[in-house]
């Protein structure tokens, strides 16, 4: 069973890698690259959130807070204090991890909707601080963020680079970078899921009482995964800030938190590839619906509602189930 499961996961990773690297063969418009980059970075955060929601069964309605903290820490350190992007990203992730640990200990004792409420409150407090501390964050109008740099070498969506002798545009370079980051994020998440920690987590999800009865320290594991998912969000937030070149407190806002959790649920809680599909769908949908003008909101709400009503397990698990059923049916028919 375990072997099969990890084999399945490997397939998922390979599939994702193929999609990521094959995509440039089909798109050439810089706008599409920039959209794809953004999706990859948000998907990375969603993969982290899925560890918490899909595997540990804990709901966070404030995850954008950590994303926003990572984004702003990097933005502030690189623009006000002249830090380089990588140390800013690492120190930021470390700091966010500590904050998540400190906050997580008490709130993860809460159950169900109370936990949602507490995470929502944490997210709100972070967003309010980012909004109010004008001197540092530029306030509600946001702040510019310098380009991402590695040892003095800058990665800007507007630059020109060469890779293995090929000339590539900054957009493509960013896209490839974000794609690789996403693959690493998925790989790390899958390793975590298959580790003893992952098994303990799944037992927490199954039944917390049963897990604690057999000696799993549920609070410890929950805190751990809370910290990990916050670090994911922080790292992705920092990269997102550098890629966008400009951020506003909306990146830490309640709406974005809701969007992140919706991506997890829509794509399929507990399925790493599924939640990435959730991120892709929910980021592309507004672009498609933009042509419907004033009907955009109605259609978005309707699509979200109908999908969840008819595919309560999420897009990927439902489709996979359907295909599996059909295959077993047709296999039965052949025999």
């Amino acid at each position: 069973m375990i072997v099969k499961l990890s084999e399945f996961r490997l397939k998922g990773l390979v599939f994702l890698a193929i999609v990521v690297f094959a995509l440039p063969l089909f798109i050439s418009n810089p706008f599409h690259y920039s959209l794809a980059t953004q999706i990859a970075l948000i998907a990375g955060a969603v993969v982290g959130l899925n560890l918490l929601v899909g595997f540990a069964g804990q709901i966070s309605l404030g995850h954008a807070g950590f994303f926003g903290l990572g984004a702003y820490f990097s933005a502030i350190m690189t623009s006000h204090y002249g830090w380089s992007a990588i140390p800013a990203l690492i120190v930021g992730a470390f700091g966010v991890g500590i904050i998540a640990w400190v906050v997580g200990r008490p709130i993860l004792r809460l159950k169900g909707h109370y936990l949602s409420m507490a995470t929502l409150a944490v997210g709100f407090i972070i967003a309010i601080i980012l909004n109010n501390e004008r001197e540092m964050t530029g306030g509600p109008d946001g702040m510019p963020v310098p380009a991402f740099d590695v040892f003095g070498w800058e990665l800007s969506p507007f630059g020109q680079y060469s890779l293995f002798g090929m000339d590539i545009s900054g957009d493509l370079a960013w896209y490839l970078f974000a794609g690789v980051v996403l693959l690493v994020a998925v790989w790390l998440a899958q390793n975590l899921i298959d580790s003893p920690i992952g098994r303990a987590l799944r037992s927490v999800h199954g039944s917390e009482v049963a897990a604690s009865v057999v000696g799993v320290n549920t609070t410890k594991y929950k805190s751990l995964v809370f910290v990990i998912s916050a670090v994911y969000a922080s790292v992705m937030g920092a990269l997102y800030a550098h890629f966008q070149g400009f951020i506003t407190p909306a990146v830490a806002g309640f709406e974005f938190s809701i969007l992140l959790i919706t991506m997890v649920v829509l794509g399929g809680m507990g399925s790493t590839i599924g939640v990435i599909i959730g991120a892709v769908v929910l980021e592309l949908l507004p672009q498609v619906l933009a042509d419907f003008q004033e009907f955009e909101m109605v259609l978005f709400g309707l699509i979200l509602m109908l999908t969840m009503i008819f595919m309560p397990k999420g897009l990927l698990p439902t489709v996979a189930n359907f295909l599996a059923k059909r295959r077993s049916k047709s296999a039965g028919g052949d025999a």
Partner: peptide
């Protein structure tokens, strides 16, 4: 009602979808 075997988070997302839908209608 149609989403009877959905879990709690899914139901929450359904109500979020419903609220966006209702708001969209009201705006129209």
């Amino acid at each position: 009602a149609p989403a009877k075997d959905a879990n709690v988070v899914t139901l929450i997302i359904i109500t979020i979808g419903a609220s966006i839908f209702i708001r969209g209608l009201a705006q129209l």
